[in-house]
Simulated assay, not measured.
Amino acid sequence: MPNGHGFSYPYGFSMVVHPILALAIGAGAGKWWGWLLTGVAAALLVAFAWEAASRSEYEKIRANDPSTTRYSWVVNWLLFFAFPALMVTLWGVAANLRR
């Protein structure tokens, strides 16, 4: 039975992890661990895009929160999670190739 509160996207994750990851990649540019962190950002990109495309995950949330639409689910995961991960990944690759 729904508790009256809708699903809450973990926006704090995106606002904290992506900037920290970007700073760490910049500090490690040209080093092996800079590439490792760029790989972590790429893995996050894949995971968030997978979550956005996942019909089963959406259906689980929809069962508890009928106000969630497929459109809002996909847009939120792509815009607030996958897009920043894409930017950090591209920036990390560029930073590592420059040095």
Rank of each mutant, 00 (worst) to 15 (best):
M1Q: 12
P2K: 13
P2N: 14
P2H: 12
N3F: 15
G4A: 03
H5Q: 15
G6D: 05
F7D: 02
S8T: 15
S8W: 13
Y9W: 12
Y9S: 10
Y9C: 07
P10W: 02
G12D: 10
G12N: 10
G12H: 06
G12E: 11
S14Y: 02
S14K: 00
M15P: 04
M15K: 15
M15Q: 15
V16T: 12
V16Y: 05
V16E: 09
V16K: 07
V17S: 06
H18I: 07
H18N: 14
H18E: 14
P19I: 03
A22F: 04
A22D: 07
L23G: 14
L23Y: 08
A24I: 01
I25E: 10
I25R: 02
G26S: 04
G26R: 04
G26V: 00
G26W: 02
A27S: 12
A27Y: 14
A27P: 00
G28H: 08
G28M: 07
G28S: 09
A29R: 08
G30Y: 05
K31F: 14
K31D: 13
W32Y: 11
W32L: 14
W32N: 11
W32C: 07
W32V: 12
W33F: 11
W33K: 09
W33A: 09
G34M: 02
G34R: 00
W35A: 02
W35S: 03
L36N: 06
L37H: 03
L37G: 00
T38N: 10
T38W: 05
G39E: 10
G39Q: 09
V40D: 07
V40R: 06
A41D: 03
A41S: 08
L44E: 02
L44K: 04
L44M: 09
L45Y: 09
L45E: 05
L45C: 07
V46W: 13
A47Q: 08
F48M: 07
A49C: 10
A49M: 09
W50Q: 11
W50R: 14
W50A: 14
E51A: 13
E51V: 07
E51C: 07
E51F: 08
A52D: 02
A53I: 04
A53P: 00
S54I: 02
S54N: 05
R55S: 08
R55V: 07
S56E: 15
S56M: 11
S56C: 09
Y58T: 00
Y58R: 03
E59L: 11
I61P: 01
I61N: 05
I61Y: 08
R62D: 03
A63D: 10
N64G: 15
N64E: 15
D65E: 04
P66N: 10
P66E: 09
S67Q: 13
S67P: 06
S67K: 13
T68I: 15
T68P: 02
T68M: 15
T68S: 13
T69P: 03
Y71R: 15
W73S: 03
W73H: 06
W73A: 04
V74F: 13
V74W: 12
V74P: 03
V75P: 03
V75C: 11
N76Y: 06
W77G: 01
W77F: 12
L79R: 12
F80Q: 09
A82L: 06
F83E: 12
F83Q: 10
P84I: 01
A85I: 00
L86M: 14
L86G: 07
M87Q: 08
M87G: 05
V88T: 01
V88I: 01
T89F: 10
L90D: 00
L90T: 01
L90H: 02
A95F: 02
A95P: 03
R98D: 10
R99L: 14
